[in-house]
Simulated assay, not measured.
Amino acid sequence: MTVDLQTEFQTYCAKLPEMIVNGHDGEYVVIRESQPFHFERTYEAALNWAYDKFGLERFFVKKVTEDFAAAHFTRDLG
């Protein structure tokens, strides 16, 4: 099974300027579908929050940064 995170990544790109202006630069955002839900200071904290909130449902965690060289991670849900 292929996990399609295109919607979440598009949301990240669209909301990035707003998230930076609102003081979230350097934090990690949890996005589900087309909604940024939560911000944390560490990847681990964001991931833990997302698992508590969404369980094994699809979600996206990414560092809020203008540097697109940052790595993307997902786990195989298949």
Rank of each mutant, 00 (worst) to 15 (best):
D67I: 13
I31F: 09
H38S: 14
P17M: 05
E27H: 12
R58S: 14
V21F: 06
M19A: 10
F60D: 02
L56N: 08
K62T: 06
K62S: 09
T74R: 02
G26K: 05
D67E: 12
I20Y: 02
Y51T: 09
F39P: 02
K15F: 15
D67T: 12
L16H: 05
F37D: 01
T2K: 00
F37G: 00
Q10H: 12
E18T: 15
F59C: 03
Q10T: 14
F59T: 03
E40N: 08
R75C: 15
F68D: 09
E18F: 14
P17S: 09
T7H: 03
A69S: 14
T74N: 05
T65G: 06
E40L: 10
S34T: 11
D67N: 11
V30M: 02
D76E: 14
E8R: 05
L56Q: 08
A14R: 10
C13S: 07
Y28A: 09
Q35C: 10
V29L: 05
V21K: 07
I20M: 07
Q35M: 10
E27S: 15
T11F: 01
E44F: 10
L5T: 03
H72S: 11
F9S: 04
D76I: 11
E44P: 01
F59E: 01
A50R: 00
E18H: 10
W49L: 11
T11A: 05
P17D: 06
V21W: 00
D76H: 02
D52W: 08
C13Y: 02
L56P: 00
D67V: 14
T7C: 06
T2D: 05
T74L: 08
T7K: 06
V29I: 13
T74H: 01
P36G: 06
D52M: 12
A14E: 04
E57M: 13
